[in-house]
Simulated assay, not measured.
Amino acid sequence: MENPIFKDMLVLELASVLAGPSVGQFFAELGANVLKIENAATNGDVTRNWKLTTEPADTDIPAYFCAANWGKKSLALNFKEKEELQQLYKLVQQADVVIASYKPGDAEKLAVDYETLRSINPRLIYGHITGYGAADDRAGYDAVVQAESGFMYLNGEPGGGPVKMPVALMDILTAHQLKEGLLVALLRRERTGEGQLVEVSLLQAAVSALANQATNYLVAGQEPKRMGSDHPNIVPYGSVYTCKCGKQLVLAIGDDRQFRKLCTILGAEGMAAIPAYATNYSRVQHRQEVNERLSQLIGQQDREGLLQQLQAQHVPAGAIYTIPEVFAQPQAQEMLLRNGDAKPGVRQIAFKVQHQEQAQLTPPPSYNNYKEDKID
């Protein structure tokens, strides 16, 4: 096995909360040395204070912080203090990547912007996350961007109110965009020797992820509406049904052949031959009728037995799982980060690269635990 791909890379993380730190952990999982630079004036990453009622009041490594900070060391600096800013500049001389999340203009005020750091290290790649881009000085908050990008408007049941996603999805989407941009910049540096600025905003990452909902409006001229779990273009897809045992499942029927198999398994072969149901195009137009009939049929079935039949015939369907049930799956167990007696973390990386050894990560760092003069 080869060593982790970024074994000798130094990443400086000048970011907090979820988006930037997720990128930092991504590089740590690929073997990079990641130093989390925390704001000494505010006692570090704000998520060190985002604690559940079940967590000790005095912990500085709560569950939320653990979501994106495995494999790092923590160094607290106040950039308004000249000596501490110089300490950062010394690290920048060695660094390959900086991950920053500042409102436009704030990095310049602190003298930690790309142009300043590039003058110290021309090979530096600087990834900068903003809420709305370089020309808009508003701070970016996931819940606000969920609202402004249409996600909250689309999420929820018909006739109900807008609903925020249960995770900070805009932060996660932004992190993925920044990872891609930084990897492109690293490839370019291999070819040219030059560093680069990579910028991404929460709002544009969110708009990019609207996918078919965006093109339903832009191409087909249909304004997307709140539909619960239903899909605007496919029926039945995403719809939730309750079995006689009280447990629920979801269907994801992508073509007419799968629909015919579904009807056969449910003992309603003739349903697939009805013109109003025979094709996806017709099922979309008769959505309510299809869902009502399927609800009746599935309501007569035991969930586990039905799922076994559906999976045996390659009909896309799955159980609605609780989070404990999710982590009981072997595939989810493979996503866990483990180290000694520390509580498990979750990997940022879900892909596998042949011949690449996985880095062994340390648990999330205590505040300001970095004391060495240089990165190991």
Rank of each mutant, 00 (worst) to 15 (best):
T59E: 14
V11F: 03
L182D: 09
P365A: 14
K51R: 13
D376K: 10
Q333M: 01
I298V: 14
V353C: 00
T130F: 06
R347K: 07
A319I: 00
G127K: 02
E269C: 12
Q25E: 08
S74W: 06
D60Q: 13
P316W: 08
G318I: 00
G150H: 06
M9V: 04
R347F: 00
L85E: 11
L35M: 06
G238R: 03
S295P: 09
Y281I: 10
Y141S: 08
Q288W: 11
A209W: 15
E81A: 11
G159E: 04
T59G: 02
Q301I: 07
A175T: 15
R303S: 02
D255V: 07
K103G: 05
L85A: 09
A359Y: 02
E304I: 11
H355Y: 03
P56Q: 10
E372V: 07
A143V: 08
Y321F: 00
V290Q: 10
P166I: 06
S22C: 12
G156N: 07
R257T: 15
P158V: 00
N291I: 15
G159I: 04
L30G: 10
P363A: 14
P316V: 04
A214M: 15
Q309V: 12
D255W: 00
K51Y: 01
C66F: 08
T215W: 08
L249A: 07
T47P: 04
C66T: 07
R347Y: 05
R303W: 02
H314W: 15
L262E: 09
R293Q: 12
Q360E: 14
P330N: 03
A139P: 01
H128Q: 08
V290T: 14
Y237F: 08
L361G: 03
T47D: 14
W70I: 01
I253D: 05
L218P: 01
L307W: 09
G131W: 13
V235K: 11
H286S: 14
K352D: 05
Q86D: 12
N33Q: 09
H231F: 03
V207G: 02
A100T: 01
E289K: 14
V250K: 00
V250G: 00
H231M: 06
G299T: 10
G305M: 13
C66E: 13
Q356G: 04
Y237W: 12
A107F: 00
T192V: 13
G31R: 00
P224R: 01
D256M: 08
K73H: 06
A143C: 10
